[in-house]
């Protein structure tokens, strides 16, 4: 049987394209079942972007969950071996929604082991290439938890104020960051640095320069060195045209450390790709390794690309090579 490209939905096409891409980089397919013991999520609830979990009891009376996330299952089951393990997956995840529950298609990859700079750059490059193969107009935004959290840590130790600052930073609200900082003893230099950092957005070379000017200590300097190293590798490979820096991107500090990133496709109002360095999660699960990975959310693709196929005259290009 031959596969007729026109019979595939955009999301199905994307699954095959991405599989080819990840296989060509030496990533191995990792297959997981749809079910997991609920306990895993109960213990790591804040790792999940969406806290809603669908549960049921199995025939032994154990509380089970329909997987809301794949990363946790992979990390839990992966063996503590020497060397770096590279895997990718394509699975459905399940979330509750206003109208009951939803099944979402997700593709992603994880790299577990010794995560060097070059490997981080490889993973971000793959995120970049993933979107390049799906949508013509896309962006990959990178941030570094060490930079933004370093600025926040320099302002206050109060966890309540930190939480408020994180929300204001994620909203890119310059005024609110300043207002919250006014309640603390932090000097103008620190509050201005954070307020400025959260509104910075643009090409890596420009933003790195500005970020150097507002960096406050060794931690924030080290984060910028990290970022610069990755941006350099990306630019050597010609992958900076659609790359941006955005320090307002933050993830849960209990799981993520270091580089984090998000991907966007013009016409889809939420991020379609999300990833980062999550050594802290492995530590929580008792593994002594580093990890970085990302997930691509394919469910919103169909609506965008199907409407383009019918409306645009130049649409409908095959994306399977």
């Amino acid at each position: 049987m031959t596969l007729n490209d026109n019979e595939l939905l955009p999301s199905e096409r994307a699954v095959y394209t991405l599989r080819q891409l990840y296989l060509s980089y030496g990533y191995k397919r990792y297959k997981v079942s749809k079910f997991e013991e609920y306990d895993l999520y109960a213990q790591n609830k804040s790792f999940l972007t969406d806290k809603s979990i669908l549960t049921f009891t199995d025939t032994d009376g154990r509380l089970m969950a329909l997987k809301p996330d794949i990363t946790l299952s992979i990390i839990k089951n992966i063996k503590d071996t020497q060397g770096t393990q590279k895997v990718f997956y394509n699975e459905c995840v399940y979330r509750a929604s206003d109208s009951g529950f939803r099944e979402l298609m997700q593709t992603g990859l994880e790299c577990i082991g010794d995560i060097e700079l070059s490997l981080t750059a490889e993973v971000i490059s793959l995120a970049y290439k993933s979107l390049e193969r799906i949508g013509e107009n896309f962006l990959i935004d990178i941030s570094h938890m060490g930079f933004t959290m370093g600025l926040i840590d320099a302002i206050t130790e109060d966890s309540n104020i930190k939480a408020q600052l994180m929300l204001a930073v994620q909203a890119k609200s310059y005024d609110e960051v300043k207002e919250i900082c006014a309640q603390t003893k932090a000097g103008d230099r620190f509050s201005n640095a954070l307020a400025r950092a959260c509104v910075l957005y643009g090409r890596p070379s420009d933003i790195l320069k500005e970020a150097r000017d507002i960096s406050v200590n060794a931690q924030t300097n080290a984060a910028l060195d990290d970022l610069e190293g990755i941006v350099n590798i990306m630019s050597e490979n010609g992958l900076t045209k659609n790359l941006r820096l955005d320090f307002s991107i933050l993830n849960d500090t209990n799981y993520y450390n270091g580089i984090i990133f998000k991907g966007f496709i013009d016409g889809i109002p939420q991020s379609v790709l999300s990833g980062g360095r999550y050594d802290s999660l492995l530590e929580k699960l008792g593994k002594n390794q580093g990890a970085i990975g990302f997930a691509v959310y394919l469910d919103s693709l169909d609506r965008l690309l199907m409407s383009k196929d019918t409306s645009a005259t130049d649409g409908g290009d095959s994306i399977v090579g």
Partner: peptide, 10 residues
């Protein structure tokens, strides 16, 4: 501002 619009119509 919508977060994605902010990026594409920056």
């Amino acid at each position: 501002s919508n977060k994605v619009s902010y990026k594409f119509k920056n």
